[in-house]
Simulated scan of single mutants.
Amino acid sequence: MAEAGYRRSAGSARGQARQQELLERVADDLAVNGLVDFSLRRAARAAGTTHKVLLYHFESVDDLLAQAILRLRGQRIESAFAAAARLPTLAARVGALWTTLAGEQSRVLDQAIGLVMYDPVRYAELGRSASRDYLPTLLALCPEAWSEERKREVSELILATLRGFLVAWLTGGDTVGVEAGFKALFRALEREEADGL
């Protein structure tokens, strides 16, 4: 909720353009510096404005943070799909997807998963929206001939597995375990794809 005395942008084209400009600057700062010590004042410095201006355009610091994370997530999903879509097999597509997920923007987005675990009430929507955001891309990477149910099942498996790999990699630096897990995942996906032909 915005502080008393501030009013949010009424949604004019000019107000929306300004809001997107501010959001882009804050998201750029998050991509470089991560979520540690994120505050309204830091966001204002990054955006080149005051905290009052940010509260004019966003409901609260949580709203601003969530929108910036969603922007970064959207960019990562677009990059992942572009890298994966042109490859010939589902296993290869998932490999390319992982390379993007573990790339430059992974730190802040994976810190966001930590927020969800740390304060599930306050940040629950960030966790729920992650599945909604990633699943369409995974569904699109599945073979076209598969039924919608099969695409959904395999996509959910991939999503859960990649999340587990990210947690293992980020919290323990377990690259050996992640590599071993990927070999097993690739074999499973290759069998799944072969069974579907």
Rank of each mutant, 00 (worst) to 15 (best):
Q67F: 10
K52G: 15
Y118K: 13
V36L: 06
G95K: 12
G177W: 12
G173C: 15
T161F: 08
K151W: 06
F186M: 05
L101M: 05
I69L: 15
S79I: 04
L170N: 14
E190G: 02
A46C: 02
S12R: 07
Y6E: 07
G48S: 09
P143M: 03
A46Q: 00
A31D: 07
R93K: 15
S39R: 06
V53C: 05
D28M: 02
L55V: 11
D110G: 14
T137N: 02
E104N: 04
R163F: 08
V36R: 13
A180Y: 15
V53D: 00
G164M: 08
A112L: 03
A96G: 06
V167H: 05
Q16M: 11
R163C: 06
D37M: 08
H51G: 11
E156W: 06
N33A: 14
G173E: 10
G127I: 06
P88F: 07
Q75N: 09
R7W: 14
D37K: 12
L72T: 05
Q16A: 03
L126D: 05
F182H: 09
S39M: 09
F58E: 03
L166F: 07
E78Q: 15
V26D: 01
R18D: 03
R187T: 05
E149W: 00
E192T: 11
T99C: 03
V108S: 02
R71Y: 11
R25I: 04
A194P: 00
Q111I: 11
S12N: 05
E190H: 08
A112M: 08
G196E: 12
E192D: 13
A130G: 08
S155A: 15
R71H: 15
